[in-house]
């Protein structure tokens, strides 16, 4: 699994992905971690099938005992079905996720994981020196859904927003936005259910100072491509399954 540093200041943001050993039939995912002193936050650590690869990648940059927190943007198995394994390995780990998903996500572990519920309006998580914000992204696509925003590193981890279905081994960043649109189009039109939710999210996200937008699948957006994505997404009609197009 490839690890790449996204931000290297007094703490670090790292992306893990493009696992060459990933079982063929499961969707490729990006996992993120924020290492801040003795606290490491794993963001959408992925499914059971890639647990050992994510663990190996994590421990190449963080100590095991420093992995204190996991954030799940929503409830999907490719986001967090590895929870039971992380919890078995680290019984004191905190899981941060929507309060709506608590009773559901506990099914992925033995049920007694330390769950830190996030209210619909969002909130924040304080690590050792930095504080990250939970940005509501409800109905994009999950009914209770959050992004993570780091105002200092200017990174928005956007969950499934901005996701693209890519060939194995594709580059980490979008290098040609126009050709990338095609890889995102069906995913967003079909998976995102609400134009209203989409517009509300875009309005709020436009106010954030973002250098990198980091989705859970596919390539990351950097610099002007973040704005290009927002403009493209704004014009896209989503929720197509209900009108059959």
């Amino acid at each position: 699994m490839i690890t790449q540093t996204l931000y290297d200041g007094s703490y670090q943001w790292i992306v893990m992905g493009r696992d060459p050993d990933k079982p063929e039939k499961i969707i490729d995912t990006n996992q993120y971690m924020v290492i801040d002193g003795d606290r490491t936050l794993l963001i959408d650590p992925g499914g059971m099938e890639i647990f050992s690869a994510v663990l190996a990648a994590t421990l190449s940059v963080s100590k095991l005992e420093h992995i204190t927190d996991i954030f799940a943007s929503h409830q999907d198995p490719d986001i967090i079905s590895s929870l039971g394994l992380w919890h078995e390995m680290l019984p004191d780990i905190n899981l941060h996720a929507s309060n709506l998903w608590e009773g559901f996500l506990r099914h992925f572990s033995s049920g007694d994981v330390n769950y830190v519920p996030i209210p619909d309006k969002g909130g924040s998580i304080r690590l050792e020196t930095t504080e990250l914000q939970y940005i509501p992204a409800h109905y994009l696509h999950s009914s209770a859904n959050f992004n993570i925003y780091d105002p200092k590193a200017r990174i928005l981890m956007s969950g499934d927003i901005g996701a693209a279905l890519e060939a194995p081994g594709s580059p980490m960043y979008v290098d040609d936005f126009d050709s990338h649109k095609e890889k995102m189009q069906f995913f967003h039109k079909r998976w995102m259910p609400s134009n209203e939710a989409k517009k509300d999210w875009i309005r709020r996200v436009r106010d954030l100072d973002i250098d990198i937008m980091a989705p859970q699948h596919g390539r990351l957006f950097k610099g002007d491509d973040v704005k290009r994505f927002l403009d493209w997404f704004e014009d896209l009609d989503v929720g197509i399954a209900i009108h059959g197009s």
């Binding site: 050992s52 663990l55 190996a56 421990l59 190449s60 963080s62 100590k63 095991l64």
Partner: peptide, 11 residues
């Protein structure tokens, strides 16, 4: 499995 795949400087 993870241990076997861990790089030299890992924990």
């Amino acid at each position: 499995v993870s241990s076997r795949n861990m790089v030299k400087y890992a924990d």
